[in-house]
């Protein structure tokens, strides 16, 4: 069975664990760097990106996470997780883990009162995917080699670059596990090739 980790420094960890387990994989909440060794794929959950980044630095996750990505191991980031993955952040000089060629804007829809639910068409998944956007970011621009998977009101809200998958919304908060299933398939393919 393949092992997928959920970075468990802060945020909605339990929900990702539940959604991944529905795809019949072994899920590991990751609190220590050593745990990265045994993983075939990793999820950056939703939460507060500034808090997660502080804890990533504090516990020496920064370099190991970059290394994890450079080996081509799959990563899936939702909301704050997508912010961690972007190579460029609007209004910030330095990105975080920087694994995907995309420019992300934080809190792009406004404050919490502007948070919303909708239904999205996501390429390769379906045209009825629930999208729960909470103080969500948008993907302003993507580079070559990045495939746009979903848009909402003309803004990119899901994208994939090889083994890396990012979305602005929170599939982990719904009972619809198709986004996670999609990621698990990326991990399975990647594990076969490796």
């Amino acid at each position: 069975m393949i092992n997928i980790g959920v970075l468990a420094l802060q945020g909605a960890v339990r929900e990702h664990v539940r959604a991944l387990e529905a795809s019949d994989v072994h899920v590991i909440p990751v609190k220590k760097v050593e745990q990265l060794e045994e993983l075939d794929g990793l999820v950056f959950p939703g939460g507060e990106s500034t808090t997660m980044r502080r804890l990533i630095n504090k516990y020496g996750f920064y370099e190991p996470l970059k290394e994890f990505a450079s080996k081509g191991k799959p990563i899936f980031g939702t909301c704050a997780g997508a912010i961690l993955m972007a190579k460029e952040l609007v209004g910030h000089t330095e990105p975080h883990i920087a694994v995907m060629d995309m420019k992300v804007e934080r809190n792009a829809f406004g404050r919490q009162r502007e948070s919303f639910e909708t239904v999205l068409k996501v390429n390769g998944i379906g045209n009825d995917v629930p999208g729960v956007f909470i103080r969500a970011p948008i993907i302003q621009e993507v580079g070559d080699g990045v495939e746009v998977l979903a848009e909402f009101e003309g803004e990119i809200v899901a994208a994939q670059q090889g083994p890396f998958l990012a979305c602005s919304y929170h599939p982990e908060l719904t009972d619809d596990n198709r986004m996670h299933q999609y990621f698990v398939n990326i991990v399975r393919k990647n594990t076969v090739h490796a």
Binding site: A8, L9, Q10, G11, A12, V13, R14, E15, G46, G47, E48, T51, C79, A80, Q112, S115, F116, E117, V132, F133, I134, R135, H170, L173, T174
Partner: peptide, 15 residues
């Protein structure tokens, strides 16, 4: 919606 309001608190977990 309930999901959006409760979800916001879910994101604060562990914090």
């Amino acid at each position: 919606t309930d999901l959006v309001k409760r979800g916001m608190a879910e994101m604060q977990k562990g914090g």
